[in-house]
Design a protein around this nucleic acid. Sequence first.
RNA 1: GUGGGUGUAGCUCAAUCGGUUAGAGCGCAGGUUUGUGGUACCUGAGGCCGGGGGUUCGAUUCCCCUCACCCACCCCA
Length: 441
Amino acid sequence: MVSTKPAKGTRDLLPAAARRRQYIVDTIRSVYEQHAFEPLSTPSFERLDTLMGKYGDEGDQLIFRILKRGANLVRALAGPEASQDTLADLGLRYDLTVPLARVVAAYQNDIPKYFRRYQIAPVWRADRPQKGRFREFTQCDADIVGCESIVADAEILSCMATALKRLGFDDAVIRVNHRDILFGIIEAAGIAPELEGTALVAVDKLDKIGWDAVTTELLERGVTAQSAARLREILEVGGGLEGLAESLEDSARGRKGVADLNELFALADSAVGTDLVQFDPSLARGLSYYTGPIFEAVHPKLNGSIAGGGRYDTLVGMFLGRDVPAVGFSLGLDRLEAVMEELELFPAAPSGPDALVAFMGDATVSVALATELRAAGLCVDVFPEAAKFKKQFSYAQEVGARFLLMVGDSEVAAGTVTVKDLRSREQAQVPRADVAQHLRQ
RNA sequence: GUGGGUGUAGCUCAAUCGGUUAGAGCGCAGGUUUGUGGUACCUGAGGCCGGGGGUUCGAUUCCCCUCACCCACCCCA
């Protein structure tokens, strides 16, 4: 027997779950459309070199590679240094941002000056799955390409907050920070620039593991004790962005980051839903392509983030040779779903078909009736084969049909349909022409 | 990549301190008179006890290996 389990890190969604997912997607799409984003569709897989080198070393390892095919594969296998990089030439997309950057670089003549696009589609990562983490999951991205102004960042932030609120996430928090502020902090603490990345990984864990553990990690990562202490001082000053600004006065990039965020928050103030937003100087996103403001949405019910994003002004340049500014975010559909499940944020499940036509010996009669009613706009199921009434009723209940319609010899002769309301158990003889009308009441 | 946990019927789980026919609930099939359901009752089908090896007179049970899944770390949506 072949296993019926879906592949590791993937899952099947039965109708009820698929409907809930559809509800989330519909909601998000309508928010994106209201914000004037337009749909974009890109292939599920890309050339491997399109993907490689955009997500950092760890990210590169998580790309789902696709084996070369036919003679190319045979040749690669026979080659002297067969490895996952010589045996594969394609990869499943790892996110929707890099494909967007490729598209922007490729179709400059065909897209507007400010390109607002959204894409809701699955992505794949060769991760080890765990709770709320899958190898196939769906991202809901919205990005603005071609705009350097912080107004674009504010639009993104506002769209993100609106989508979350529309779904009912009133206690989500959107943490906001800036790449330049992080760099400024590193500078001000006297940490060598080449240690920035590794030091920030430790700082990012602050809200999880606390200062003592972070300090330990910093030392392990090669940061001096003085710098670690200074770093802590800077981050513990308090007073939010203003308090931090003083410590960063000597850093040009630090000042730029503070100015950007001041502008961003001012704009955000005048936008919808920004009460979810919160400045957090310890937020450091891992993805290597971010260059400016960075965002991450979290929810108390879930480990890890439910959304992430930021500004990436140099990513398009990796395809084009010249930089094009861009900022965007991504909602993690599967994680949103998990939290909404737990908080019961879904509307009541839709009911089944309006009616089931029972099998009374002649399927052509059933199908004809169903067709008439469907033409009148109703949702109608047909019991497809001879079976006892008990079975037909059980099935009607199983699929949630509201009415059972019976057309046997006597009804045909009388030109009527027996309509039984499965909730009230009342039933009536209805002239055939009036059935649709009757069902709608 | 590192560490931990769990694998018994379609599903959720029992039990066997190593012993002969491994159980329950749910689900499924049939029935309680053949054009009227959801409840109830009766009956039934369905398990190489994840796979391989070892110890033993005997292994689903103990030991080793392996695979699968889950959880945590890492990283991320």
